[in-house]
Nucleic acid binder design. Structure first.
Lengths: 232, 232
DNA sequence: GCAAATTAATGATTTATTCAAG
DNA sequence: CTTGAATAAATCATTAATTTGC
């Protein structure tokens, strides 16, 4: 059974570029032989030979072989000291972490911006391994699930009752923001990111109770990850 | 009208935490006095006073005042030299960039991982300003739109014809990847992600500008972003 | 009591939609 | 009306609860 489950996922995927981008020959891709003939349609005129030539695909392609399978084989000999957790598991929040996140959520935070996420992660790291992405996902999931829970309940009680006000939210957005430069006042755009916050006027009460703070046993480590660089 | 539109978003939002998270007193939040009493239900026992106490919200809260309104007011007097584009416009791909992206797409690439995105962006930056997020979004949109186009056409021609094979895709995912550690062999999971990194020796470039390679969203001006920390 | 077998939660990704700049 | 940007909904996968047979 465990085996079966594994199979299902492993077989069909990872054919293209997943872990090892194929060389330009694209020999390993079983579908789509049209690979290199690229400049066809509109691209043709647009991207002159110059551009095409100049773009050195090889320069950023790893010399590996195509089969993603290989990667699987090597397993992890993480000599890396960083990976606390052996295999690379998912984040397993501690009670403290959840309690704090829940507090923030209840205080109105819905979609923290990158800066906030970072800060929160820093604070929460005191209670266990955690990364910014975990915070990001936590809010997304929590928000979505509360939404669906509410929808379900309102549906159950009275199909006629107008659904409770959706809650202000407005999710600012994710990933990074600038640290010092204040501004960015994102006045433009949609809801935009970053600027705002979440309001919350109505007393709302949440469904309350539910707080579902389920006790999570702690699990130490989490993983390695490194979202380090990338800025520019 | 312009006003109205603005209103909708600005009025209701920006009350909590966005740029200036409120102090623990949460004085500025007009709603929800329950803010601080958090450890209620299950959380109570789980997160002992210790944890709660230890979590110093103030430590990562900026000393600003609460109203986000303020931020808006200041507008952008971006004395910052960085923003190449005045107002913060969206990416406007050059012909060469599109041609190359299209080529990659046609060669089978669907959802490049962070590392690939970074590399592509670097290459494409030769033809014009571009960031990693632009590459990321381009693939997402292109893929999605092709899908819908196909759906539409197949629907139009014959509601009975089985839709053409969806195409292999398998999107690796985004966020960062690690540069040297090869590994992270993501053998587990879905397509996996994160494990990698992208280092990039951030020499601290500050937001410089020039190359804007950041991955991910956000921010109009583009720039700034920093995914620097976040790791843990 | 205690593992294997199920099921329930929920972390992590992907896909569909929506919004709006140009 | 095209398409870059962003968010929400749906889905997938893994860990923890819980149940069940011994």
């Amino acid at each position: 059974m465990g085996i079966q489950a594994m199979k299902v996922h492993q077989l069909p995927r990872g054919l293209i570029w997943d872990h090892d981008p194929p060389s330009l020959t694209l020999g390993c891709k079983r579908f789509r032989p049209l690979a290199l003939k690229l400049s066809t349609a509109a691209a043709e005129d647009a991207l002159s030979a110059t551009a095409t030539a100049a773009f050195d695909l090889k320069s950023f392609i790893k010399p590996d072989q195509c089969s993603p399978r290989n990667a699987d084989v090597q397993k992890k000999e993480s000599s890396q000291a960083d990976a606390a957790q052996p295999g690379g598991t998912r984040w397993n929040p501690t009670q403290e972490q959840i309690g704090i996140l829940d507090m923030l959520y209840r205080s109105g935070m819905r979609t923290p911006n990158a800066q906030q996420i970072e800060q929160i992660a820093v604070q929460l790291s005191k209670y266990g391994k955690i990364e910014g992405k975990n915070v990001f996902y936590w809010f997304q999931n929590h928000k979505a699930r509360e939404r669906q829970k509410q929808k379900r309940s309102s549906l159950r009680l009275s199909p006629r009752t107008p659904p409770p006000p959706p809650f202000p939210d407005h999710t600012p957005c994710f990933f990074l923001s600038s640290p010092n430069k204040e501004e960015e006042n994102n006045r433009y755009k949609r809801k935009c990111v970053f600027d705002e916050v979440n309001e919350y006027s109505r007393e709302e009460e949440e469904q309350e109770e539910g707080r579902t703070l389920k006790l999570f046993p702690l699990h130490p480590e989490g993983r390695v990850s490194l979202l380090s660089g990338l800025m520019n």
